[in-house]
Amino acid sequence: MTRPPRQAVKACRAGSPSIADAIAAQRQLTPRDLELLALLAAHRALTAHQITRVLFTDTNTARKRLVLLTGRGVLARFRGCIRPGSQQYRYTLGPLGAMIHAATTDKPIPTPRTVAEKTLKLSRNPQLEHLLGINEFFTDLYHHGRTNPGCELLEWWNERDATQACANIARPDGYGEWSENGHTVRFFLEYDTGTEELSRLVDKLHGYRDLRDGGIAIPVLFVLPGAKRQTNFHRLLAGQPATLSGLTVATTTGADLAAADPAAPVWWLAGHTTRCRLAALPTPPPATHAA
């Protein structure tokens, strides 16, 4: 069971925030707050831990700021009711935050009701944990760049933007560009939660082969939920060499990422037995076409 977003309920009780409220609220926002609004607009939901790793250096400072912004209606938050224990809050744009970000990016100003409805739908979305898993991958990589000189996450695209860039030929869960000591690697991300047949994961590679034939040759990374599923996936790929031809495919697991981070040598390259760092992944050769 998921609790309704408190801020949305409070807004309904106290009256909808107005444009004047948004103008007043934005005067109290810092550049970091505005960066947070842009992140949430692009990636829909982030946990407190993920926000801290991207924008803060201190957990307590982050918690206090998030609570303050939520109380002002700039952010909204929700979490599921689980027993025993509790769940981290999931943060998204509140009514004022959505209005301010829309004005900043020259988009139509949403109504508070529309924002509250989106938040409620997001809190009930069965794909929410999948979304948070994708965002965990990228925020971990971002944090590694913040804390290691010479490293930087240059690009982080959500599923919608990545799919549009692929002209719907492939539907990656995300796209990134990672730079390490002057070397940059581009990649597509497929975040697997174990709910699909492995054959379905293999079928996704056909779209990436079509992209390669069209001139977009980029490694495809799979994050899998466990070692057994990873081994079975590689075994299935080994039996279909034509599917892999011309592609760079690498996998890791949630446990590997929990023990290290996405930049570390946790990537098992299909067709090989060793693991490599993200920055060391080979870029697939461009397709050659007969004249």
Rank of each mutant, 00 (worst) to 15 (best):
I169S: 02
A238Y: 05
E129H: 07
A162G: 01
L37G: 11
W156S: 06
E129D: 14
V185T: 15
L247D: 14
A290C: 09
H144A: 12
F187T: 02
F56Q: 07
Q230S: 12
D161P: 00
S123P: 08
A45Y: 08
H101C: 04
L153A: 12
R44D: 14
T104G: 02
A260T: 09
A264W: 04
A102H: 03
N60K: 13
F78T: 08
Q164Y: 05
R186M: 06
K228V: 13
I169N: 02
A270S: 15
T57W: 09
A259G: 01
T104P: 00
P285M: 12
G73A: 06
A279G: 00
T57M: 09
T59H: 08
P110D: 09
R79E: 11
L236A: 15
D21E: 14
N158W: 06
M99P: 12
P5F: 10
H43E: 02
A280K: 04
G150K: 08
L189R: 01
L269I: 13
L244S: 05
R77K: 14
Q230D: 14
A167H: 11
T57S: 15
L120S: 06
E136T: 15
T274N: 15
G94N: 03
N158C: 15
T111R: 09
L201W: 11
A48L: 05
G207F: 01
S245R: 05
L201T: 07
R277I: 01
L153E: 11
G254L: 13
G176F: 03
Q88C: 01
G182T: 03
A24K: 13
E197D: 14
F138P: 00
R79D: 07
P282R: 02
T252H: 03
G176H: 06
T193W: 00
N232R: 14
D161G: 00
A162C: 02
A255D: 14
R275Y: 06
L40I: 04
L131Y: 00
L46W: 10
H144T: 08
T111V: 00
P31Y: 10
L221Q: 10
A279I: 13
A116N: 14
K64H: 09
D256T: 01
A41S: 13
R65N: 10
T195P: 00
T147H: 10
D58A: 12
R77H: 11
E129T: 08
A8R: 10
T252A: 09
A25C: 07
N60V: 09
P149L: 10
Y175N: 01
M1L: 12
G94D: 05
V266S: 06
T30H: 04
R146Q: 15
K228P: 00
Q240E: 15
V115E: 05
R186V: 01
G85R: 09
W156G: 03
P17D: 12
N168K: 06
L278N: 07
P225N: 08
V67A: 10
I109P: 00
H43I: 02
G226R: 04
Q240K: 15
A62M: 02
